[in-house]
Amino acid sequence: MQKICVIGGSRYFGKLLVERLLAAGHHVTVINRGSTRPPDGVEHLAVDRNDEAPLTAALGARVFDVVVDQVCYTPVQAAVAARVFAGRTRRYVMTSTIEVYDPATGAPPVGTPVAEESVDPAGWPVDLGLPWGDEAFRAAHYAEGKRQAEAVFTRAGFDFVAVRSAHVLGGGAREFTGRLAHYVERVAAGRAIVVHADALPTVFVHYQELADLLRWAVEADFTGPVNACSDGLLDVHDLIAAVAAQLGREPVLRTVPAGEEASPFSFDRPYAMSNSRAKKLGYAFSRTTDWLPGAVAETVTTRQ
């Protein structure tokens, strides 16, 4: 049994992660602002992770084997956590994102899923002076915020892991982005779906698989970034076809040239990553095509 601290962890796949950790016999402490109650059997500290002094006071003398940070979006948040948890934990796992592989970072050619070393947090510059507290700035610089947060933790002295998640799908209430529901609703209603004519493929992960992988990262001993995506590349046309098959309807598509705005998951630039490092470390992924029909079916049922 380990002592695990989960920052966030009360909604969506974070809640499932907490349940998985409890089932494995770990002692779990959840930190959030108190708006959402964590599962039974969890120690709950209601405090804002951005407020350093109250967070330090709430933790008291607690120490942990591992901290899992589900809600770190900026280097400022990472710097606060690095100071607060210094000497309190040996391992820090941060939920990161495929978005760190923005083409501006030097993504590989089309058809080559990007590997972790394409964005090395150890050498990534950090600027704490940017207006990270401004919501609009933070939203517009989501990928850069995640990259710089990884960089801060990499230099903090922990055994640090960045789990770079693919696009998360799941169906029903767990499909928290609403993107799968977007396609279900448009296909069902016969409304046009805007896509790129030559849409490039990307990668996805089921929320249950992401929770399982995070638990694996908690219990493992590797460090550094690791990509989290199910096997198999899909483009937006594949996704729409899965929805159309479930609904028994022909989708209505409207194509736009590269560079113009399109529907979610329609990409006109490389947006796929490799999961080979996680496999070499011992994690076995599912195939997206195996779980996608169930996720679509759950979304259809929830919508009705």
Rank of each mutant, 00 (worst) to 15 (best):
D48A: 06
C229W: 03
A53M: 05
P225G: 02
R83E: 05
E117W: 10
Y92E: 07
Y142M: 05
R20C: 03
D40S: 13
V110N: 09
A241G: 15
L234K: 10
G34Y: 13
L213S: 09
T112I: 11
R88D: 07
V168Y: 09
L17Y: 07
A24H: 12
P54M: 02
D231P: 00
F285L: 07
L292A: 09
E99Q: 12
T112W: 05
V100T: 10
E250N: 09
R179N: 06
L22N: 04
F13Y: 11
F13C: 02
V67E: 08
E135V: 06
N32G: 04
P293L: 09
T202I: 02
V203D: 08
P270Y: 06
A242S: 13
G178P: 08
G145F: 14
A107Q: 05
V243S: 12
H196C: 13
T74I: 06
F265V: 03
P125Y: 07
L214Q: 11
P54E: 07
T299A: 00
R62D: 04
T202K: 02
A46L: 01
Q246M: 07
T112Q: 13
R191D: 15
A199K: 13
F64G: 04
A244R: 10
A104S: 14
G178S: 03
S266I: 13
G41E: 14
M1S: 14
N50V: 00
I7T: 10
L253H: 05
P108G: 01
S266Y: 12
I4T: 14
E19W: 12
V93A: 00
V63P: 01
A242Q: 08
R88V: 03
D198F: 06
V30G: 01
A151K: 01
A162L: 08
V256M: 14
C229L: 01
Y183S: 08
T74G: 04
V114D: 01
T112K: 09
E209H: 00
R303A: 12
T56F: 05
P121N: 05
F64V: 11
H196K: 14
D51K: 06
P264R: 06
A46P: 03
L22C: 03
R90P: 04
D40N: 10
S230I: 04
P38V: 07
T289I: 13
R33L: 00
D120Q: 15
L128S: 10
G60D: 15
Q304I: 07
H141S: 09
D120F: 10
A58S: 11
E260Y: 15
A140K: 11
Y73M: 08
R91T: 03
T112E: 11
L45F: 11
A272M: 03
D238Q: 14
I240H: 12
R62T: 00
A220R: 07
T29A: 00
T288E: 06
P103A: 09
I240E: 13
D69T: 02
P293R: 11
A272C: 06
D65N: 13
V226P: 00
T177A: 13
R147C: 08
L22E: 04
L130M: 15
T177L: 06
L17V: 04
G133T: 11
P38S: 09
E150K: 09
G106P: 02
H44G: 01
I193Q: 13
L253M: 05
